[in-house]
Design a protein around this nucleic acid. Sequence first.
DNA 1: CATGAATGAGCGTTCATTCAT
DNA 2: GATGAATGAACGCTCATTCAT
Lengths: 206, 206, 206, 206
Amino acid sequence: MPPGRESVVSTTSQSGEVPARSKRADALRNQQTLLAAAAEVFVTSGVDAPIREIAAKAGVGMGTIYRHFPTRSDLVGAVYRHQVEACAEAGPSLLASAESPLAALRQWIDLFVDFLVTKHGLANALQSDNSGFAALHSYFLDRLLPVCAQLLDAAVNAGEIRPGIHAYELMRGIGNLCIGRDSDPRYDPRRLVELLLQGLQRPQSS
Amino acid sequence: MPPGRESVVSTTSQSGEVPARSKRADALRNQQTLLAAAAEVFVTSGVDAPIREIAAKAGVGMGTIYRHFPTRSDLVGAVYRHQVEACAEAGPSLLASAESPLAALRQWIDLFVDFLVTKHGLANALQSDNSGFAALHSYFLDRLLPVCAQLLDAAVNAGEIRPGIHAYELMRGIGNLCIGRDSDPRYDPRRLVELLLQGLQRPQSS
Amino acid sequence: MPPGRESVVSTTSQSGEVPARSKRADALRNQQTLLAAAAEVFVTSGVDAPIREIAAKAGVGMGTIYRHFPTRSDLVGAVYRHQVEACAEAGPSLLASAESPLAALRQWIDLFVDFLVTKHGLANALQSDNSGFAALHSYFLDRLLPVCAQLLDAAVNAGEIRPGIHAYELMRGIGNLCIGRDSDPRYDPRRLVELLLQGLQRPQSS
Amino acid sequence: MPPGRESVVSTTSQSGEVPARSKRADALRNQQTLLAAAAEVFVTSGVDAPIREIAAKAGVGMGTIYRHFPTRSDLVGAVYRHQVEACAEAGPSLLASAESPLAALRQWIDLFVDFLVTKHGLANALQSDNSGFAALHSYFLDRLLPVCAQLLDAAVNAGEIRPGIHAYELMRGIGNLCIGRDSDPRYDPRRLVELLLQGLQRPQSS
DNA sequence: CATGAATGAGCGTTCATTCAT
DNA sequence: GATGAATGAACGCTCATTCAT
């Protein structure tokens, strides 16, 4: 039978699984090669890069990619899963360690932006209406939205920022701000994201 | 089926038009038809709509479009030129009439956002790395950047907003915020743009 | 680039239509080339032949085929239209000229079989559940079913054959009998079709 | 292509196997599972079903199927062997028990049609020019042709039907008539097969 | 000048078949 | 032997762009 096809969400498996089948070793190595290649291609050609290109870069057949990642977003999801996880996990711990909820939020957003800006076209894909990315979109939201919401709430409760903005809106705003040809010296997403944050801060007039 | 319509040549149109300079008139009317059609198509199918679709709507051949607008962005630019002009011209007059430079800036940005959000996919196109839109990008910048910069400077000089942001960055930020599936109830670009503005007003914080 | 495709041909064109647009001439010639090529390919590779193969044989791009015949069955239909028409038109005239309705039916079926057996895979396609052939199926039925029904009715009314069989069933039966690798010496569709006819004839016991 | 692999006909099959070598038991059980799975899949997806699907249903690897049944038709043949056998064996006994050779033939054909129409796509496959089915074709013919011929001869000798049709032709005709989308209410293969039979009975007409 | 027929690169996707484990 | 991962040919289809008419 097919081993597991639990796609996007949680292949991870950090529990010390025994490789049920030695076959797995090969396949796993292959997966790694694949993910590495895909990551590389994504950087240069964006997440919309032709499957063929990724396959070529990885030195495998296209079929192999389809086998491991039936959907493009499965692939994208897998490529960035670690970073998404890291981002998600960073939320609570930042909240615990930072000197204030707002500081935590700011640091977390920094991670998030880091993530987005280094991945060519990823932010773009997050808002694409392309159905192929539906799963990816969901995955991101499912995983990160609660984290962002928690940080936001904490900052609101601490009176550091005004209420009224939803985590979804904030994340998408940040995502959008990170869209664009990488490293245009005239446009620094971070500066704009920071403005957003300052716009959220307490005392405001009109 | 093709209703056999074959046989001799066609002697072309010798109805004795004596268009003094009808050439010119014709061409102009054609352009108008074209622009109207394109505008219409852009609304429904976005600015990436197939050339064919536009040509069909206009009732002209694709070649005609290519002749008048060698590049897709030439076409898009032409279609929205009026509005871009209006936006550009509104800058100085708002500055003159508004109660403060910041108010003028805010109103101007509102116009700009209006423009972007109502044009399906336009904001998207503005940041696309698709080479076909390079000229469009330039056009927008050439025309609107100085206006925005002027408003920005005025507001800075009036002490209403902090210095340090460049008009380019602001415009692109706003442009990016306007990207997205139209009218997702959970995401309102204006709210985020407003945050950006508020972020600019703060007397300095971090 | 296209080598030379400026063959000769003339397409005759008996009605003295003025060619609305000289363009038409080219396109028409192309259509002819296309139909000829398709016909040829259909013979050797069946009506399921890859579009590419047909395009190659015709010396045109695939797009050209798609333009002229958006659907595969459009192409097949076009290729065989003449023959279908001939078959359809033969019905009434055979009925008028043959010595009896049954004789007419028999002769008509002969034409029909002629048509089917010479077209590799056509009979097959007619019963395929492949959605691409839906239109083809309809076309055949629309055109030939009434003709067959008329002949059938006449023979029934003349008391030459028993009632009870529908034209659709008969046609499909004949179509099915004509399926198969062409010219297997051990299998002659005509013989079986003739048996079918004899089975229909009047006096029958059990 | 694969050299000679004409296994189709007689893959062992003795019933009372003593699994002297447990290997054997395993392999056999495997075969059974395989055949059961294939049969099931054939019903739902036709005999052209992807190998993968069958392998999945059987819970084995595709390689295993290829080992046991190098050719698709080997598999199809194996799946339906029992029924083919039953059909083959029914011939002589029907001949012995029926009230007349013709009655026997009719009943036998009924069995044959039963067999064909209940197997999704089987009739179709029997005449397919797909090389993968060549062996299947042979197998059917080898096994059933003599039976049919015997029945036919008997009926001819009894004066019940006209001579002149060969068993091969009759069988293929019947096979063809059974091709088609299952259970189209407008087309009943049996009715046409019956016509064929009646056509054979006539004391000579045309 | 306008037209739109033609081109063909490019993409996603499927699946028979092979072969390392 | 059994497995199923890998391969890649093959196909349908779309559309930007060119160019003969």
